[in-house]
Amino acid sequence: MRTDQFVIAGKEYHSRLLVGTGKYRDFNETKTAIEESGAEIVTVAIRRTNIGQHPNEENLLDVLSPKKYTLLPNTAGCYTAEEAVRTLRLARELLDGHNLVKLEVLGDSKTLFPNMPETLIAAKTLVKEGFDVMVYCSDDPIQARQLEDIGCAAIMPLASLIGSGMGILNPWNLNIIIDQLKVPVIVDAGVGTASDAAIAMELGCSGVLMNTAIAKAQNPILMASAMKKAVQAGREAFLAGRMPKKTYQAEASSPTTGLIS
């Protein structure tokens, strides 16, 4: 499907599945699962380095080369606009001027629900500083539009709480957001299994971002493969256009004439 382009901040990607790199057993599992998922954009967190306490500790970027993947540094764990902006400035320095980032400003440690007022403030600053901002947000269509107006590169509403695996809880809000925005809408957070990813794509999302659904599956490598197919299948179903639902009358698929008597 050559015409079905997936473009974020001017760059075209082939995979509509974006994956996180947290919660895996080890770097080997991280690497294999991500390869299996076919994802091109992978999120990373920014944290203090150990200052010589564990000199031989492996580095994530040894496993996930920035040459092979588009790294998407996030602001997970930030609760204010200021912390988030500082973190992403550090990320840009870390990744040699790389501008594509994932903004998330959390409001509550129990639900990890986004703090939207702080998210909007941070988005404004980051866009002004030249970042291409993919932004985790609530599924409020008005705030989603405000984030697009600010100039964010992708709007990423939650399907349900981060790490919950509860699936798409409010498809109606997602529908409104997808309908009214021009930039890619990517479901971020809440996907639990392959059918959830397929539903997100059938709704018309441009992509799906997930971490726990793969990393905490009983077999993460196999789930990564399932998610790759689910995202592709959901996208194709969306493009194909589903048959209309008929709630009132069945319609036979086989001929109604020529029956033996």
């Binding site: 790199t21 895996y24 967190a45 380095t49 870390l94």
Partner: peptide
């Protein structure tokens, strides 16, 4: 001084 690296995360 803050010195940071990339680590696994969503």
């Amino acid at each position: 001084v803050e010195i940071v690296v990339a680590v696994g995360g969503g």
